[in-house]
Amino acid sequence: MNLRDLHYLVAVADLHSFVQAAQRCFISQPTLSMQIKKLEDSLGVQIFERSNKKVLITPIGAAIIASARRIIQETELIEALAENAQDPLAGKLRLGGFPTLSTYLFPQLAILIKQNLPGIHLILVEEKTDGLLQQLKNGELDAALLALPLAEEGLETCLLFSDEFLLAVPSTDALAARTKIKQVDLAGRQVLLLDEGHCLRGQALQVCRINGADEHQDLRATGLETLRQMVKAGAGMTFMPEIAVRPDEAGIRYLRFAAPAPYRHIALVWRKTSVRTTLFNELSRLVQQAVQPPSC
């Protein structure tokens, strides 16, 4: 058994496919299958159940794979300790973000990281919150930008900024003539929301329930840009985080809420066991710089 074989196990477990796992590991599928079969034979247990349609993990296989993940994390920690000792602001940085934030933040952030942290090899990952948390715990990400609060243990958080929600309405809507609205003005109205799995959906639903608004049952979107186009087409109204707002956009009006306005707290999150605090402190500064409006 060697570290390479453990990476093969984890890849198959993640993807439930020998073909896709081989692609991830940059080897041929027969070679990967042969190595895993050798490992199973040497251990005397079956780790995967194979069929033409899917790959299943056996109960003993699940325990072995969990142990393999821990071993891989520990070896990566050793490598990170060595790299960090040489230069804390260099090396590979795997940073995640959820779609309703990363789409609007990552482009500017990537530029700032390239300018200020030339020794960093940046890898950006866009995924929903649950997926990001899982990748953080598995050691597949170094850090992630997430909305607070988080109920997960073993994570360190640094609050970066608050992203206010505005109400996006068609320019033909009666509310479009206002400069500000109150949350109670939502009572009895239907609001377009994102599909299941988006943290923004949960935050928006909470505001709706408190103020007597309902979710539009016939229309649901997979991304903010779809919601934006639906509002412009006159299909309804939606919540839009300020980071995604486009001022003076034809066909749509963005209305601020009178205090107290709804918002989300955005934080940088990493494992408490990570040794890259110096890098994360600098990254936090750059994220805050990226969300600042340009100076005149």
Rank of each mutant, 00 (worst) to 15 (best):
T58L: 03
L159F: 07
E156V: 13
I123D: 15
I210K: 10
F98T: 09
R276T: 13
L6V: 00
I266C: 05
L186G: 09
L155D: 05
L39R: 06
S102G: 03
Q217M: 06
A68W: 04
S42N: 04
R220M: 03
Q135P: 01
Q183T: 15
V19Q: 06
V12W: 06
Q20G: 02
L145Y: 04
C199A: 10
A21H: 06
I243V: 15
D130A: 12
Q203H: 04
P59K: 08
L224G: 06
L77W: 11
R256W: 02
Q203D: 00
L227F: 10
D142K: 03
V207T: 08
L205N: 01
A151G: 10
L200I: 00
L101Y: 01
Y104T: 02
S17N: 03
C199T: 06
H16W: 00
L150K: 06
Y104R: 00
K180H: 12
L200R: 00
L56M: 07
A213Q: 07
A187T: 09
M237A: 08
T277I: 12
R253K: 13
L159Q: 08
I243A: 07
L200V: 04
V275D: 05
M34G: 00
A62G: 05
E164N: 11
W270R: 05
L145R: 02
L205V: 00
E74A: 14
M34S: 11
A267Y: 00
E126C: 03
A261S: 15
H198D: 13
R209A: 12
G251A: 09
K182Y: 12
T273Q: 14
G91N: 02
L224F: 10
V184Y: 09
G202E: 10
T172L: 10
T31R: 15
E140G: 03
A235E: 07
L141D: 07
F26C: 07
E40T: 03
G119T: 03
F161L: 11
C296I: 05
L124A: 05
L9I: 08
I71C: 03
H16V: 00
A62R: 15
A62K: 14
T157K: 08
S33R: 14
L124P: 01
G197P: 12
Y104D: 00
I113Q: 09
Q289M: 12
Q134Y: 11
R285Q: 13
S274T: 15
L43I: 02
P30G: 08
S17P: 02
D185E: 14
I47E: 04
N52I: 06
I72S: 04
M34W: 08
L133I: 13
G212S: 13
T75M: 05
A143R: 00
A259Y: 06
Y254Q: 01
A213Y: 13
K54H: 07
C208D: 01
P293R: 05
A85H: 14
Q135H: 13
A110H: 09
V125S: 06
T172N: 11
V231H: 10
T277Q: 12
E152Y: 04
G251C: 09
L186D: 08
R228V: 14
D41L: 09
Q289F: 00
L81V: 05
L268T: 02
Q46T: 15
L101W: 01
L95C: 10
H216Y: 11
A151P: 00
Q203K: 02
E152F: 02
